[in-house]
Amino acid sequence: MNYQEAKIKFVSTWGSLGTLWGINKAMAQIQALLFISTKPLSMDDIMAELQISRGNTSMNLRQLMDWGIVSKEIIPGERKEYFTTEKDVQELARVIAKERSRREIQPVIKILKEVSSIENDGSAETKELIKQTKALHDLTETADDMINKLVNQKQNWITKSLIKLIK
């Protein structure tokens, strides 16, 4: 397999995996392309490489910047905007985990707390709803706390955290 074949396979596979993580294929492919690029890429570069429209590219770059994993880079003498992504794999994982907690887990915790705090009217149904949603709330909050402890470690957070768990 040569470089071009390997690049296409990586970007395509990363795009497919992205859909499993709750982001669209084009968004994941753009991030993958930027991840393996040796230099910042313009929107035109990305569009040509991935064969996607300007609107699709623009929208997904904006979302990736909202996530905090893609940023604009100024190249002196160039009028085009250029984009790059975090290259440190552990930092990238940390940023993604933190953002997913904020976007996905925190809203669920809030709703579970609200639902499990309803007034208990004494019925079996209400008691069961409170019991089960409180248990789910506590589990979700504990899992989120563990994730936050992991992601708040700076350098080599995965390794350091795993060592702490083993000790």
Rank of each mutant, 00 (worst) to 15 (best):
I69V: 13
R94K: 14
P40I: 01
L34P: 03
L92D: 04
T84G: 04
E99D: 11
V89H: 14
Q90P: 07
N56S: 14
E78N: 04
T57A: 15
S71W: 04
D66W: 03
L61M: 03
P107T: 05
Q63W: 11
R54N: 15
Q90A: 09
R79W: 02
I30D: 05
I52C: 12
Q51I: 11
F35H: 10
L20C: 07
Q106K: 09
K87M: 12
I109P: 01
E78V: 06
M47R: 15
P76M: 04
E114A: 08
M27N: 07
S116I: 03
K25H: 05
S71I: 07
D45Q: 03
L41H: 05
K80V: 02
N24I: 02
E73H: 06
N24L: 04
S42P: 04
I36M: 00
S71D: 05
N56A: 14
E81R: 08
A93R: 15
F35A: 04
A28S: 09
V95C: 00
G55W: 10
S117P: 00
K80W: 02
R103C: 06
M59P: 05
D88W: 08
W67M: 11
D66F: 07
K39F: 11
P40C: 01
K39C: 11
R102H: 12
E81N: 07
P40V: 00
V70P: 01
T38G: 13
V70N: 03
I118W: 01
I109M: 02
M43T: 09
W21K: 13
F35D: 06
T84P: 05
F83M: 05
G68A: 00
R94Q: 14
W67V: 08
L112M: 05
I52A: 14
M59G: 10
E81C: 00
T57Q: 07
A28D: 04
S42G: 02
N120Y: 10
W67S: 00
T38V: 07
M59C: 08
P76D: 10
W21H: 13
D66P: 07
R94L: 07
A32W: 00
I96W: 09
A93K: 12
N24Y: 00
K80F: 04
A97P: 06
W21T: 07
T84S: 15
A48G: 14
E91Y: 08
